[in-house]
Design a protein around this nucleic acid. Structure first.
Length: 204
DNA sequence: GCCTGGATTCCG
DNA sequence: GGAATCCAGGCT
């Protein structure tokens, strides 16, 4: 882990700080580069009820317990994939969900992958970001920092200053609405719209 | 084994 | 507001 990436391996208790630091970083895959504008922090076992790793390792979440800088890709709602950067020391399952970004390279390719819609929505939302990058379940468990996988995470070329960063509750998470672990770049049009978690159906 | 509901998106 | 769409994880 070099190139200024060592902060990814900070203890799980520092995960909000780690997430914040990832804003402005650039993720490339398959000819498209995205500058991160919105992320969410998830802590590990026993610390964060909203984390997939909350109850300990499972076949699906074992990657989260591995080395920092690897990709945790998971399937949701029967049709979408979401991408996380695994953080923390091995054995501690913290991660940062990449929620949105602006396309700064490979714009034409990104448009082809996403179909119609304004450019600011190409990677606005975690599943859209994944689709824009052209990755899938194959990327799960690969390194995002050493070039051995399809993904590459690089430091910002445009710095994000602390006063640009806004914090708020995480999206779509039941409970823990008081935990402001979602971070985004103030005023950036590629940040996804906040939607409160809404129960699917009400039993009565 | 069965059942539930989800770190979402798109359409009506 | 609700459907699409399927599997991981929890429970019996």
């Amino acid at each position: 882990m070099d190139r200024g990436l060592s902060f990814l391996a900070a203890p799980a208790s520092d995960i909000p700080k780690t997430a914040k630091q990832l804003l402005g970083w650039e993720v490339s895959a398959n000819g498209v580069t995205v500058r991160l504008t919105e992320v969410e922090a998830y802590a590990g076992t026993g610390e964060d009820p909203a984390s997939h790793a909350h109850r300990g390792p499972t076949p699906r979440t074992k990657v989260m317990f591995g080395p920092a800088g690897h990709a945790y890709v998971y399937f949701v709602f029967g049709m979408h994939w979401c991408l996380n950067v695994v953080c923390g020391p091995e054995g501690e399952a913290s991660a940062v969900l990449l929620r949105a970004g602006e396309v700064i390279g490979g714009l034409e390719t990104a448009r082809e992958r996403r179909g119609s819609g304004p450019d600011r929505e190409l990677a606005r939302g975690p599943a859209r970001l994944v689709k824009t990058l052209g990755i899938g379940p194959d990327a799960n468990g690969t390194s995002m920092v050493d070039g051995t996988g399809p993904l590459l995470l690089r430091p910002p070329t445009r710095l994000v200053t602390p006063d640009e960063i806004v914090a708020g509750p995480r999206v779509g998470v039941a409970g823990a609405h008081d935990v402001p672990w979602r971070f985004w770049i103030s005023g950036n049009p590629t940040v996804s719209a906040y939607r409160r978690h809404s129960p699917r159906k009400r039993s009565r």
